[in-house]
Nucleic acid binder design. Structure first.
Lengths: 169, 169
DNA sequence: TCTCCTTATCTTGACATCGAGATAATGGAT
DNA sequence: ATCCATTATCTCGATGTCAAGATAAGGAGA
């Protein structure tokens, strides 16, 4: 390492350097950024997975329970509302509700205003579980960001928002 | 909205505000960051998916073909090497190789040095396809970052690296 | 050479997801 | 009242993934 300033090569650097050798005609600048977003997402997923498992949950189940919980009392939403909030396919949501119902964490209730639909509500156990799980979850998330300065976190959040806006245009 | 500076609320803001109302005891600062990383990752995935589909590929297939391509001539790696590079389970890689072989994009060749193993190599069509696909892919990636200044991209990349290091500690 | 531990890949079963089509209720227009 | 387009959810088949166990070859030591 002759570089004047210390440089630790990570996996994304390794990949972009391979491409630069094999395909020097390509500009892999964007790959360096997008690849890092992907890796970071996976690292966060791995970290949060363990917390979900402590409560017998996975990300999919937590997603539904948390959506119901933060919607506020009486903690009921239609499958359609849940679909919009979680961005999965309709068959996926049916399956998630089925499994959560089998676990006793949610129940399907009649919708007095529209009998095509019904309401998915947290059971007592579901409410208690998600309240404990989300408490642990935010702690895990805070640990995953430990080591970043407050100012860095703020800058990071702004750049993430800008990048999101750029990607959607 | 009395805020002195304009503030566009996005989906992650909506979620964190719901939690602040329902569970004011929780600090959701980290959720604001991790949630944005997750959303950005999904946005990038959606954007890149269309490019893969143009070539009859998906992210999984492209992942394997690109790993072989950037490894350099003769574009062969063992399933074990591919496993390490792509971080999926062994059964997943078997399945990916099977499908790429059915597509005629890779072929299994005997490994003269170890007959427990074999070598997965790009076919002529596989090499031609991945070279065209990766050219389009880096263009798509560049478009996804269009709108960010060069300096912002640099800062973003540094923060992503820092965040990755923080998450892994 | 035989044994046994290790390494490398495949097989299998469970599960999550998607997307297209099926089913059923709503609500406006005639 | 009836029709029909719309809305809401479920069903079903295909795919992709994982984890654990099975299969098979390598390699070290007696």
């Amino acid at each position: 390492m002759q570089s004047p300033k210390p440089f630790a090569m990570d996996h994304v650097d390794f990949i972009t350097q391979q491409w630069e050798r094999e395909r020097p005609d390509l500009d892999v600048t964007a790959m360096g950024v997008i690849g890092r977003v992907a890796r970071l997402y996976l690292a966060y997923q791995r970290g949060m997975h363990a917390t979900f498992a402590e409560f017998g949950l996975n990300a999919a189940k937590f997603d539904v329970l948390a959506t119901l919980r933060r919607s506020g009392a009486p903690y009921t939403l239609s499958p359609g509302d849940l679909l919009k909030a979680t961005m999965v396919a309709s068959g996926t949501m049916t399956n998630r509700i089925d499994r959560l119902e089998a676990d006793g964490l949610v129940k399907r209730e009649v919708n007095p205003e529209d009998s095509r639909s019904f309401l998915v509500g947290l059971t007592e156990e579901g409410l208690a579980l998600v309240d404990r799980a989300v408490t642990a979850h935010v702690q895990t998330q805070a640990q995953l960001l430990e080591g970043l300065e407050t100012q860095e976190v703020e800058t990071f959040k702004e750049l993430l928002s800008k990048a999101q806006a750029a990607a959607n245009s």
